[in-house]
Structure formats: C-alpha cells, structure tokens
Nucleic acid binder design. Structure first.
Lengths: 128, 128
DNA sequence: CTGAATGCAAAGCCTTTGCATACGG
DNA sequence: CCGTATGCAAAGGCTTTGCATTCAG
C-alpha cells in the first residue's frame, strides 16, 4: 500500500481515540491537520486500512459504522442512550461452537462479534 | 397498541421467515397481500413491534437492518459473502462479565449481542 | 368522535462512486 | 513515468418524517 500524507494522518488521528469514532467525526479532526482532505478520502482509507487488517471496522449496533485502531478481536460496550462505544477493560472469552455439530459440516465460521450494551457512566448519572 | 390490518399482516409475514428479512424484502412480500401498503408503514410497524418486544431488530453486521420474529435472545450466523442471516441451531451461552468489576460500578450492562460470521452453505459451495 | 395509523412523497443520514487532477515509488 | 490516491460533487442505499386522510376502539 502506498503511503500518503492523508493515510498517515488518518491513522494517527484514529489512534488517538480511546472511543471509536465514526468516519464523519474523524474527518472533522483530520481536517484540523489537513484542511483540504475530503470525506471520500477518509472513507476510502478507513475501508482500505480495515481490509488490510490494520484497523477494525465496527459494524454492529447503531446506525453509523465506527472504527477501532486495534484490529485484535476484543469486546465492546455500547451505550444505548448516547451511542458511545468503548472497549471492555477486561478479557471476555467468546464461546467456541462445537466444530463437530452437523450444522457446521456445510458452513464455515470465521469469527464472532460480541458486544455488550447498556448505559454508560454519563448516561447513568443522567437517569432519574 | 391498536390492531390494524397492516400490522397484523406484517407480523404474519415476518413469522413465516426462517431467515431474517430486511424491511424492504418484507415490504415486497406484504404487498402481495396488501398491495397498497407503503414502505413507511412497514418501517413504522417494525420499529413499534420491536420497541414493544414482540419482534427483534438486528442491527449488527452488514448495512441493512434485519428483523427477527423471535424476540428471545439467541445467536445468529451471518454469511460474509451473501449477507444472509440465520439462527444458530444450538444454544450458546453468552459469557457474563463479573458484576463486581470496578468498571461496572458506574455503568449498567443491559444485554449482549453475539453474532458469528463466516460462509453459508451456498457460498461455501461456490468457493474455489 | 378522537387519537393513532396509513399512504405518499420528500427529505435525511451515512456511504459510495465517477472523473479529472495530483502525486508516490 | 505509470498507476494509485486525491478532491470534489453527485448519486446511492436505507430509513425517517411531514402532512392530509383514513380507520380502530
């Protein structure tokens, strides 16, 4: 993959995030560094980087897709109220289905997504 | 909730599905019974029914949202190639995080989504 | 009757794409 | 140099929404 200024900055900015921003949010931050970058470029790079396994595209929950600088499989916690997404700060083992189950004879499992949802700290405080 | 012909037919048609159709697919099937129903009505009803817990809205994986006539928590298998979604035909227990973990003192977990992905029977056969 | 539900069409949000230009290796 | 990457803007899915009308209770 060719290294361009845009690609580098996008990755840098993404890595600053503990939460997992959507393309649009990231676009606005990258724009502070590269004011002429286009939203299309951000999308194209995020897609490329996730296809190459450098980052991870989170497609579950909520409407908007989010991006995670950590491509290793790990679980997330999504707030059902404000939509924020964070890593779980502890390990959770995703259960392995029994490979000998007849149903899996004609299918292939490549991986799993496990997401917990609930109320984040801010939204819990805001509840009555 | 008021019972309308549209609402009843939408639910009936959804229940016929073993897979989990998107709103658009369901709309076309309902139209065979109620030719004048609108796509907006289908969306509004699917949203209402899932808010009431009668059905379940699947938001993870792929772009389009899908709807499951079974509101009970259970796992799905999504084909990364054709996008089809099916129930897993066996039980899988979602791991419970340790409720005493300090991180959870200020948050509340309401549930979890566990989705496996891979290649379905048809797409496995089509691979080289 | 009265508020909730519908059909229709327009608008909305997020994402992708076509094309001419710029640039990295 | 060549082919990939970019900026720009337009188009594309899918979903939501405003509004006048219809319908269920």
């Amino acid at each position: 993959m060719r290294e361009t200024k845009q690609r580098r900055i996008i990755l840098e900015e993404l890595k600053k995030h503990m939460d997992h921003p959507g393309a649009d949010e990231l676009y606005h931050e990258v724009r502070k560094v590269l004011p002429r970058i286009s939203l299309g470029t951000v999308y194209r790079n995020l897609d490329l980087l996730s296809e190459c396994g450098v980052i991870r595209k989170l497609e579950y929950g909520s409407g908007q897709k989010r991006f995670d600088p950590n491509p290793q499989p790990h679980c997330h916690f999504r707030c059902v109220k404000c939509g924020s997404v964070k890593d779980l700060p502890f390990e959770i083992e995703v259960p392995e289905p029994d490979k000998n189950h007849p149903w899996l004879k004609t299918r292939k499992i490549l991986g799993a997504n496990l997401e917990y949802y609930g109320l984040c700290t801010e939204c819990m405080a805001g509840e009555h």
